[in-house]
Amino acid sequence: MTVGVHVRTRLGCERSVALALGEFHGIEPIELEEPGTLGVLIRDETLESAQARLREEVTRLENVLVAWPIHFEW
């Protein structure tokens, strides 16, 4: 299961957030053109576990303002 997530970071913190996210297994950050944003792919066994990782790992990271799922396959 993969969930596509749109992440809004503090301006100028995109790189540091991307690096921190890259440390998590199964989480792939993708740089986006819009300043203060990142794309993130979360791969996990189930939608629920991917959602939990979004909540527990992505949104709690320093300089992440908010993270929205924008795609999922069921």
Binding site: G4, I30, L41, E73
Partner: peptide, 8 residues
């Protein structure tokens, strides 16, 4: 979004 959909 396209990459996300394709990967999923």
């Amino acid at each position: 979004v396209k990459i996300s959909a394709a990967t999923a």
